[in-house]
Design a protein around this nucleic acid. Structure first.
Length: 106
DNA sequence: CTAATGACCATTA
DNA sequence: ATAATGGCCATTA
């Protein structure tokens, strides 16, 4: 139903993440202009109802996949399907798939 | 208005 | 490597 401006911003930024790449909650928050709102970003994504928002590409800053509204397992599966390799412990190599590096090297 | 909640983060031990 | 701690913020009750 009604979404807040904050949520709209989160979704808009999240949509920009390319297939095979990931971004952290903190980075999304930083892109919003609120570097300390990582937690709120997670809430917004959890609330997300739009299918065109690749919320599965948002992970934790420590490399852990993090949560997912439809289950973390599903999240890992989708990421793997997109080419993001994940270790057995559910860790993603941020220096390789991270969005930050994507900007840096582009 | 206050209090609690959560897909978080960084620091410290 | 794990665990505890304090902080942060939008949203909801």
């Amino acid at each position: 139903m009604s979404n807040t401006t904050f949520q709209q911003e989160v979704y808009t930024i999240t949509k920009k993440i390319l297939r095979g790449k990931v971004a952290t909650y903190g980075e999304i928050a930083r892109a919003l202009g609120q570097p300390k709102a990582a937690r709120a970003v997670g809430n917004a994504l959890n609330n997300n109802r739009y299918g065109d928002v690749p919320c599965h590409r948002i992970i934790r800053s420590n490399g852990h996949v993090g949560g997912y509204a439809h289950g973390t397992k599903k999240k890992i599966l989708i990421l793997k399907r997109e080419g993001v390799k994940i270790s057995k412990h559910g860790i993603v190599n941020l220096s390789r798939y991270g969005y930050k590096k994507y900007i840096k090297n582009s």
